[in-house]
């Protein structure tokens, strides 16, 4: 009886989860603007919070330019960037916060079942942002190193069941993607271009359990792939750089 009940409950909760994951929200519902000049950080963040609180779902961005600072992705939320949708990083250094040690446009710490998918773009405006970062450091207002203060595009720490799929990642101020202490990360079909700032690395991962990257292209000024610390169950295949070199996980 109890067992049956438990199974029924488990089934029900599975159903609920899969159901709620289907819920989609258009960005405009939360007043998010695609005009390239409205800073949408708070509206998008409220949208993510709301969707997560409602049990999860997909926040959909359609064609347009969505200016934003750091967004903290929450459990069971998928960001879908449809073709032509661009998340544009704002050029003010103080609009960014970090997950772990790395600032980024998309941050998450301790979240699960999160994803960024679609044919759209995350764009870092690296040159402009770096200029502002350096100005702030030179004036003594920002007491961080350039590296610390340069946001990546994606920085995830201690997250599990992460999917980054299909999107184009362009011109961060710092490195492109950083994953630390994550579990079950899947990256696929990403086109990565980072040529605006020096030594911008493509993907840095450390302490991950289950890290898969397939069919990605990296055109970066720094190493396309840098792994630090120990990660286990790493699978990298079909990923290459402009000179045609296939990326391999370093042992």
């Amino acid at each position: 009886m109890n067992k049956l009940k438990f199974i029924a409950l488990a089934l029900a909760s599975v159903c609920t989860l899969s159901l709620s994951a289907q819920v989609t929200y258009k960005a405009s519902y939360f007043g998010v603007k695609s005009d390239g000049s409205t800073l949408n950080t708070r509206s998008i963040q409220k949208a993510i919070d709301h969707i997560s609180e409602q049990g999860g779902g997909t926040l959909e961005f359609y064609v347009g330019r969505y200016l934003t600072g750091t967004l903290n992705l929450k459990s069971n939320v998928t960001i879908q960037l449809h073709e032509g949708a661009v998340l544009v990083g704002v050029t003010f250094p103080y609009d960014y916060t970090a997950a772990g040690d790395t600032k980024a446009i998309i941050c998450a710490e301790g979240q699960e079942n999160i994803a960024v998918i679609g044919k759209g773009v995350i764009q870092g405006q690296g040159t402009l942002l770096l200029g502002n970062v350096q100005t702030q450091i030179n004036k003594g207002n920002l007491k961080e190193s350039v590296a610390q203060a340069s946001p990546a595009l994606i920085s995830l720490k201690n997250c599990s069941n992460v999917k980054i799929e299909g999107i184009n990642l362009q011109n961060p101020c710092g490195n492109v993607m950083v994953y630390s202490d994550c579990k079950d990360v899947t990256l696929s079909n990403l086109a990565v271009t980072s040529r605006q700032t020096a030594n911008s690395q493509g993907v840095i991962f450390s302490g991950c359990t289950g890290f898969s990257m397939t069919d990605c292209y990296f055109d970066t000024t720094g190493d396309a792939l840098a792994s630090a610390g120990t990660s286990t169950n790493v699978n990298i295949s079909g990923c290459k750089t402009p000179n045609g070199k296939q990326l391999k996980a370093k042992k």
């Binding site: 695609s34 064609v63 347009g64 032509g84 661009v86 044919k119 086109a191």
Partner: peptide
Amino acid sequence: GYDYEGPIEDLP
């Protein structure tokens, strides 16, 4: 740099 830039299409 224009507010409503033409959409970046799926690459590469």
